[in-house]
Amino acid sequence: MTAVQTGKRASIRTRVWIDIALFVGYVLLSAPQTTGIPFHEYFTVVFIPIFLAHIVLDWSWIVRVFKRTGRERSTEVRFNRVFDIVLFIGMVVVIYSGFLVSESLLPDLGIDPEITSFWASLHNASGNLLILGVGIHLAMHWPWVKRNIGRIRPNRGTT
């Protein structure tokens, strides 16, 4: 195995680990009734960099998908293009509105946000819709997950 191949594999391995962390973190964040509001809010601070890393590490794929034109634009590419933008907007909205309806994190920092019905409803609605969206996103990328899930183990030898 060449150095380039080793580097490529390590990169996919990192991406798989980030995706696993993102999924587990997302499930925990989506169940505040189970984990409690303080965990729900504090863990968001950990979740944001993982979410950012998920996008940044897959940046070349994102650029490729958005650059495709004409016959290269298959149903899959067209769908992923629109759906991933919607998912990104949903994630930004749910995180931002979560800060604006904070009952634990911001009050602990001495900031007491005035919780309005707009942001509270938006947080609940976008949160629920986003779980559906993540299910669709996972299903659409399931072949990639299946192909690469075995790579979470460290490289052993050069075979």
Binding site: S30, P32, T34, T35, E76, G135, A139, M140, W142
Partner: peptide, 30 residues
């Protein structure tokens, strides 16, 4: 409290179910 996790699992599963016809179409397209 487990109900919270069950809700997430159901929603994720439903989302994956919705994606099935689309994935079939993508496969046919390919």
């Amino acid at each position: 409290s487990i109900a919270g996790l069950i809700k997430v699992a159901l929603f994720l599963g439903f989302g994956a179910l919705i994606a099935r016809p689309l994935r079939r179409r993508v496969a046919a397209d390919r």
